[in-house]
Design a protein around this nucleic acid. Structure first.
Length: 479
RNA sequence: GGUCCCAUCGUCUAGGGGUUAGGACACGGCCCUCUCAAGGCUGAAACACGGGUUCAAUUCCCGUUGGGACUACCA
């Protein structure tokens, strides 16, 4: 592949909000395509809307992409740093008479537009200023593109051929009356200037495409880039994904305890597939990515499936790594503070017991409560059902056994439990459930032996004794 | 309204002129089991509708319906 044919793609968000699910998917697909053919992935911040763009959002977008592992090979470029470039192009296109100054005021245009709407006709700029030779006093003009006649063909890599009548396109504005260029113009300049080979973006941009292609042709002899329009992501109500549908910012998912692997995997399967495969490593995605396997229909965002994938990635991640990721969540839920010293081996052991039953890091951190907190709080129903007279001798016997136990491991604990059950002629359940409530406060937990092993002798004994006390107190009250 | 796009289980999707229309999430059942999970097995669940083309259409074409995007001196 020669140098100028090299694949160069870009993700071009506007910093008017956080990196959301839809943007992340667009970024991912661009990144994937670049990686799949040894191309360059460029990040470009489209901040020409100065009223709505903020630095805070730029940082948020960067943070989101970093979390997802979508590293840009070039950039971030900022369009506001390139205003001089756009100015040159505007002067040039004006000089070549492919664009013109328009002195129609907003108010005049409003009136024409209202009339068109009232008559149920398509509103288009009527070309009043196309022939105008002289400036109008007291009006700062906008610059409009002189849309040529004919048709514009878009050969979309995903959708195939689309044909647009140029008469339906407008003499759209390319520079505002304050001289600043507008989106449809700067995109084209940048893509031209940055030698973008493929434009991969949401299909909400389809209608911009013919306009941009016309601009390319007006500005350059080069063939315009190839276009690939990705299907939209919708909410459960089939409307465009928005805040109403829950968290839409990528970083919000981080805070809810999702793993970037899970989110990437979920996102890649929205509109794309490779046979029956559901789980993909980033490497596999890169290897299998192709425009041919991208669908055309919009996809509904399904949080349940994301959760399932997250659980999957939690299960398959090493407990050591998980422990590190878990720590921020432990301090957030108050289980550890800055000066807490956690033995990392012990933490990994604890995580090990929780991996298969946590769908998010938040859930896992909450389960850690019974391992870390000083006291457990009993669930009312659990206490009433299991911390009862019947359990008292069992808990007492167990306490004695454990006090004399030196070898505090899964196997010896199992032997102890078996022995007690045999002597008392009861099923394991009769013993395990009260113990579970005593130790965790609830009825759901890891296996009883691993639970005790991780909890340790001291904490186990303390809680067993507390449970015994609770049962005795209750008896006394009744008496 | 106009332009453009889209249409397989509730959801994500595979498939494609002849299939018992496959998988995954969610849901139900069973197994495993000290609880909860995880895991295994299993069940229910879809080609929007109407016309063509064809020996044959869910698949190709047209239309209808439904959904969506755009229609800014936003991006």
């Amino acid at each position: 592949m020669s140098e100028h044919e090299k694949v160069r793609v870009r993700f071009a968000p506007s910093p008017t909000g956080y990196l959301h699910i839809g943007g992340a998917r667009t970024a991912l697909f661009n990144w994937l395509y670049a990686k799949s053919c040894g191309g360059i992935f460029i990040l470009r911040i489209e901040d020409t809307d100065r009223d709505r763009s903020t630095d805070e959002y730029i940082q948020a977008i960067l943070a989101g992409m970093q979390w997802l592992g979508l590293k840009a090979d070039e950039g971030p470029y900022r369009q506001t740093d390139r205003l001089g470039v756009y100015k040159q192009y505007i002067d040039r296109i004006l000089a070549e008479e492919k664009a013109y100054y328009c002195y129609c005021t907003k108010e005049e245009l409003e009136v024409k537009k209202a009339a068109a709407v009232a008559a149920k006709k398509l509103y288009k700029y009527d070309g009043t200023c196309r022939q105008r030779k002289k400036p109008r006093e007291g009006v700062d003009p906008v610059v409009r593109f002189k849309m040529p006649p004919g048709t514009t063909v878009v050969d979309d890599l995903i959708r195939g051929r689309m044909v647009f009548e140029n008469s339906q396109l407008d003499d759209f504005i390319i520079a505002r009356s304050d001289g600043t260029p507008v989106y449809n113009f700067v995109v084209v300049i940048d893509d031209l200037d940055m030698n973008i080979s493929h434009i991969i973006r949401g299909d909400d941009h389809i209608n911009n495409t013919p306009k941009q292609i016309q601009l390319y042709r007006a500005l350059s002899l080069k063939e315009p880039p190839k276009f690939a329009h990705l299907p939209m992501i919708l909410g459960a109500d089939k409307a465009r994904l928005s805040k109403r549908h829950g968290a839409t910012s990528v970083m919000a998912y981080k805070e809810m305890g999702y793993l970037p692997e899970a989110l990437n995997n979920y996102l890649v399967r929205l509109g794309w597939s490779s046979g029956d495969q559901e789980v993909f490593s980033m490497q596999e995605m890169i290897e299998k990515f192709s425009f041919k396997s991208i669908g055309k229909a919009a996809a509904v965002f399904n949080p349940e499936k994301l959760l399932w994938l997250n659980a999957h990635y939690i299960k398959s991640m090493s407990s050591e790594k998980l422990s590190e990721l878990l720590k921020p969540f432990l301090s957030k839920n108050g289980l550890i503070s800055e000066d807490t010293v956690l033995d990392s081996k012990w933490l990994a052991r604890a995580v090990d017991t929780l991996k298969e039953r946590s769908r998010t890091l938040v859930e896992m951190a909450d389960s850690m409560r019974y391992y870390i907190a000083d006291e457990v709080e009993y669930d009312k129903k659990a206490r009433e059902k299991f911390l009862v007279d019947e359990s008292l001798p069992l808990l007492e016997t167990l306490t004695e056994h454990i006090e004399n136990l030196n070898d505090f491991t899964h196997d010896t604990l199992e032997a102890v439990f078996k022995e007690i059950c045999e002597k008392a002629e009861i099923k394991l359940k009769k013993l395990a459930q009260p113990v579970r409530v005593a130790l965790t406060g609830g009825t759901a937990s890891p296996g009883i032996y691993e639970l005790i092993e991780v909890m340790g002798k001291e904490k186990t004994l303390k809680r067993l004794k507390k449970a015994i006390m609770v049962i005795n107190n209750y008896r006394r009250k009744l008496a």
